[in-house]
Nucleic acid binder design. Structure first.
Lengths: 210, 210
DNA sequence: TGAAAAATACCGTGTTTACGGGATTTTATT
DNA sequence: AATAAAATCCCGTAAACACGGTATTTTTCA
């Protein structure tokens, strides 16, 4: 028989934690091995290294859940962390992803997804509940790819421009005169409909024009 | 009884399509309603508007799967598109997401995830198979969050700076003098270790400091 | 209440930008 | 061979930037 998936729960709201526990009980291949009410408690325990999944709240007394992620991963890099929070702000989601979370479920609809999330994460995947998935999608979708056509040289110039160096330095790097760079930049601005170096760099970054 | 999930498959490799079909047969709540070997065929059919899920290959004769996504969504915006491809390149994944795909499974391991993916996508979520999930994670993770602390005012200034407007305009917007903005900008540059407006904007964008 | 941090403001100088104009050479493209 | 597109270069000017310094007021917090 396969070993059961070992789950740790870090949640300070006891009634919600109980709901999660009963939800996990109904998943035959999983078992809740430990439960803590703060990151500190969990970090000081010795149960992390045996666990497969960590269900983590964000709003916690002491160390914030998001801040806790790197600390948990330091102790056990194999740990699959799934955030379960009431917070549905973009910044929380993206920070969680940056920190290395494998999933983000909202408390309001996590029971529908918990089983799926556990299975999927154990298979190496990642999972978001709908509202969070929409944010990820929006994040990637946000800029319709620009139809503007820059010439080869203009692309080279823009690529350097967006690193933040001066036109003089660009001229040196491309072994052309300052005047030439200036001309290219002028044309780039016209094509991108911008009026400053920062705006050009921004458009370049966001639209994947380069 | 609930209506079954209606699935359409667009795949030109017949033997692989057969495998997918038999996999779907084993999911009681789903049914494969149509199968096409190209985007054109599927687009010309009248089955799209009734479908819930479209399983879509990328390498197809004629219209490429990724190019097909917006066309499918134009006909039926509610369609949940899951890419099933052999291609595991970042660019394909991100383009798929930009186009509006709800999932990305690799052919090499899609059978393990297909059932989960269908369920999850129907719940409004999204799903990636492990290698793809890792890419998404890497994408978000690439910039270690800056530990730099900017003051409230500095953040406001930086937020405006990265829109590409001049310091003079920033002063007007914040109703402070140019000299004050200049001071803030100087301090921001020092804290971020940059030497130009473009670099500051870049750091601000990439590190999620704001 | 007292010290530290933050926000405010000004000056001066050399550098860089934005942008108008015009002009020549090189490189496709047909 | 002819035309268009791209790449090269220069001039001039007003505005904006980077950066050094100094200094006052306001806020915060121990």
């Amino acid at each position: 028989m396969e070993k059961k998936v070992q789950i740790i729960l870090v949640e300070d709201d006891m009634s919600f934690a109980d709901n999660v526990k009963s939800c996990i009980k109904e998943i035959p291949e999983s078992s809740l091995c430990q439960q803590y009410i703060s990151c500190e408690d969990a970090l000081n325990s010795n149960s992390l290294s045996d666990a497969d999944i960590l269900l983590l709240d964000i709003n916690l007394p002491g160390i914030d859940g998001l801040e806790g992620i790197p600390r948990f991963l330091q102790i056990n890099p194999e740990l699959n962390i799934i955030i379960i929070s009431i917070l549905n702000h973009d910044s929380k989601l993206f920070k969680a992803l940056q920190m290395g979370a494998k999933g983000y479920l909202l408390k309001t609809d996590c029971f529908m997804h918990l089983k799926t999330a556990i299975q999927e994460v154990m298979l190496g995947g990642m999972l978001f509940s709908p509202q969070m998935a929409a944010k990820v999608l929006k994040y990637f979708k946000r800029k319709p790819l620009l139809k503007v056509k820059l010439t080869k040289r203009e692309k080279e110039v823009l690529k350097l421009l967006k690193t933040g160096i001066s036109k003089k330095e660009i001229a040196t790097k491309l072994q052309i005169s300052y005047g030439t760079v200036d001309s290219h930049v002028k044309n780039i601005y016209k094509k991108l409909h911008v009026k400053s170096n920062v705006q050009a760099a921004k458009v370049a970054m966001e639209s994947g024009i380069i």
